[in-house]
Amino acid sequence: CHSECLGNCSQPDDPTKCVACRNFYLDGRCVETCPPPYYHFQDWRCVNFSFCQDLHHKCKNSRRQGCHQYVIHNNKCIPECPSGYTMNSSNLLCTPCLGPCPKVCHLLEGEKTIDSVTSAQELRGCTVINGSLIINIRGGNNLAAELEANLGLIEEISGYLKIRRSYALVSLSFFRKLRLIRGETLEIGNYSFYALDNQNLRQLWDWSKHNLTITQGKLFFHYNPKLCLSEIHKMEEVSGTKGRQERNDIALKTNGDQASCENELLKFSYIRTSFDKILLRWEPYWPPDFRDLLGFMLFYKEAPYQNVTEFDGQDACGSNSWTVVDIDPPLRSNDPKSQNHPGWLMRGLKPWTQYAIFVKTLVTFSDERRTYGAKSDIIYVQTDATNPSVPLDPISVSNSSSQIILKWKPPSDPNGNITHYLVFWERQAEDSELFELDYCLKGLKLPSRTWSPPFESEDSQKHNQSEYEDSAGECCSCPKTDSQILKELEESSFRKTFEDYLHNVVFVPRKT
């Protein structure tokens, strides 16, 4: 048989008469490798580009789960590009990614509803959504962080984005990388972005840091009482949809009607710091009717980097990364020049730590249904340095008659930039024990000054392991946590139920 035959053949030295091919099969003959313009397919066939392209389009058009959109890589027609490569849609070739590779997620039936953290986790790592997304989240724990972890990498949506009755959302900033909504599939009414009845939605994105392009379709905003109209108009300008909307697409009466839409800028007039305090004062603000001013709200939190936005980490279910302080308005003076500047002394802060701070007014709604208010920009203030805590785990070892090696770990709280350490030492008198000992005694162990690591005695271990207080009263049991108490109650309830079950099964009433 021919060298490319495997198993047997019907005619000697003829690659077209093989029972099976050793390498690849091409047009009725066995070959060692697939010549151009053919590609290896499933490690035994040679196919042309049209064959591989037909497989790709067949799966793409069917949208069946589990099928493969075949691509070409290293002269092979394979189910998908290997790690580190992405497909070129024009020629199906796998090309190296520039940075992290995109991950295209194809949605069944063309859309997916995100109504819980669990459903959001199914899209973790996706960068391109081939379909439409509907966000409908009523509640949950730590929602802002969970949504950002699972949806934060999405850069492109081919269909539309719909935010509907998501009472738990305060902001859409968890879509931190969303840059493009194509609108290839539109919501009824030709809408590519749809926001309806979101009672706590206050911000779409921080438009000073976020760009969003909507290729096709219109915007729809109705019944978002805490979303200011200025935020919607800003989205029109940034996304390129200005002029597409009709009169009733953006409701003037049901958007922002319960919001404090600040239209003035508060400026800080005085800032002073110490290692654990920050004193702030800002310019006074009074609405047209000074009785509408209820006070100020001061927001602050630790910020290692200057990239904080107002609604980071917030949701309507209680999660809030900001510390909020309510401040009463100052006494009002008739003389504008003698107006008191409101302020606040922030206490209990960490030394040498940068804080993000902003302040906003708290006002009631005027009778004319106009909203007044003022808010400052987010500023960054760093507390002063102070003395560091003591170095940890000092170790001293003498390696000769004239040297001592000293080692330690950095302090747990540096409280500033540590530039150097101060080492103090003092000579001590020799131990009298060394002169009084009889060095001729056998088995004498000389006193040693070398360091030995501390260890816990058996008594201390027994005390720590004991669940009861000892007789001397030195140790006591740790208080039980809520989960331990709940577990004990469940076990007790189970024992009672099981005992009742045994009584009912074992003891049967005697027939009379």
Rank of each mutant, 00 (worst) to 15 (best):
Leu219Thr: 03
Phe268Ile: 03
Val359Ile: 10
Gly140Lys: 04
Glu184Met: 02
Val308Ser: 10
Trp352Arg: 02
Thr254His: 15
Val238Glu: 11
Leu186Ser: 11
Glu264Arg: 10
Tyr270Ser: 08
His106Val: 12
Ser396Pro: 15
Phe358Val: 07
Asp312Phe: 13
His341Val: 07
Asp257Phe: 08
Thr127Cys: 05
Ile181Met: 03
Phe174Val: 10
His233Val: 08
Pro284Lys: 08
Val397Ser: 13
Glu283Met: 15
Asn248Ile: 11
Ser376Arg: 00
Asn399Trp: 08
Ala303Phe: 14
Glu146His: 04
Leu331Asn: 14
Arg272Trp: 14
Lys209Gly: 10
Glu155Gly: 10
Val325Thr: 15
Pro336Met: 02
Cys228Pro: 04
Asn387Arg: 08
Arg347Gly: 02
Gly139Leu: 10
Arg332Trp: 06
Pro410Phe: 07
Phe275Ala: 15
Ile154Tyr: 01
His222Pro: 00
Tyr194Asn: 13
Asp377Ala: 10
Phe268Trp: 09
Thr383Lys: 00
Ser230Lys: 14
Tyr300Ile: 12
Thr371Asp: 05
Gln121Arg: 13
Ser274Ala: 04
Tyr160Ala: 15
Asp384Val: 14
Glu122Pro: 05
Asp289Tyr: 06
Gly125Phe: 04
Ser119Thr: 05
Trp207Met: 06
Ser132His: 05
Phe311Ile: 08
Asn130Glu: 08
Gln199Gly: 13
Gly243Val: 00
Val238Ala: 07
Gly125Ser: 08
Leu107His: 10
Asp335Leu: 05
Gly295Ser: 05
Ile188Thr: 14
Leu345Tyr: 15
Val397Met: 12
Ser171Ile: 02
Trp322Arg: 01
Ala251Asn: 14
Ser208Val: 07
Lys209His: 15
Ile135Leu: 05
Arg179Val: 08
Leu201Glu: 03
Ser208Asn: 10
Pro394Trp: 15
Ser321Gln: 14
Thr185Gln: 09
Tyr223Ala: 04
Asn340Trp: 13
Val170Pro: 06
Glu237Asp: 15
Leu147Asp: 00
Ala149Tyr: 06
Ser173Gly: 05
Asp377Gly: 05
Leu180Asp: 13
Lys350Thr: 06
Leu349Ser: 01
Thr273Ser: 14
Trp286Tyr: 05
Glu237Ile: 12
Ile154Pro: 00
Arg202Tyr: 11
Phe311Lys: 08
Glu246Asn: 08
Asn190Ile: 15
Cys261Gln: 03
Thr361Gln: 14
Ser192Leu: 00
Leu345Met: 06
Pro284Arg: 08
Leu108Ile: 08
Lys242Ser: 10
Gln354Glu: 09
Lys277Met: 09
Asp289Phe: 07
Ile129Ser: 01
Thr118Ile: 06
Thr213Met: 08
Arg369Ile: 14
Thr185Lys: 14
Gly313Cys: 04
Thr371Tyr: 15
Lys162Met: 05
Tyr160Asp: 01
Asn136Trp: 07
Tyr194Cys: 15
Lys360Ile: 08
Asn150Lys: 14
Ser132Leu: 00
Phe358Ala: 15
Phe174His: 06
Pro391Tyr: 02
Ile378Met: 03
Ser171Asn: 08
Thr113Asp: 02
Ala195Tyr: 00
Leu133Ala: 02
Tyr223Trp: 09
Pro287Phe: 04
Gly243Ala: 06
Val128Gln: 01
Tyr191Glu: 06
Gly240Val: 01
Ser398Cys: 13
Glu310Ser: 10
Cys317Phe: 15
Ala120Gly: 12
Ala195Asp: 00
Thr361Ser: 11
Asp289Arg: 08
Gln245Pro: 12
Lys177Glu: 15
Lys234Leu: 04
Ser402His: 12
Leu266Arg: 00
Thr361Asp: 01
Leu123Trp: 07
Ala259Tyr: 04
Ser192Gly: 11
Gly189Asn: 15
Gly159Lys: 01
Lys218Thr: 15
Glu155Ser: 10
Leu169Ala: 12
Ala259Gln: 14
Cys105Leu: 01
His341Asp: 10
Gly131Tyr: 02
Asp393Phe: 15
Glu237Leu: 13
Leu169Lys: 00
Val325Trp: 15
Cys126Ser: 01
Asn150His: 13
Gln354Tyr: 10
Val170Lys: 04
Leu186Arg: 13
Ile129Lys: 00
Arg291Val: 11
Val397His: 13
Lys226Val: 15
Asn211Thr: 11
Ser173Gln: 05
Leu169Pro: 07
Asn136Arg: 06
Arg176Gln: 14
Ala168Thr: 14
Asp257Val: 13
Gln199Ala: 06
Trp205Arg: 02
Ser239Val: 14
Lys226His: 04
Asp292Pro: 06
Gly131Arg: 00
Leu169Asn: 01
Gly183Thr: 02
Arg165His: 06
Val363Pro: 10
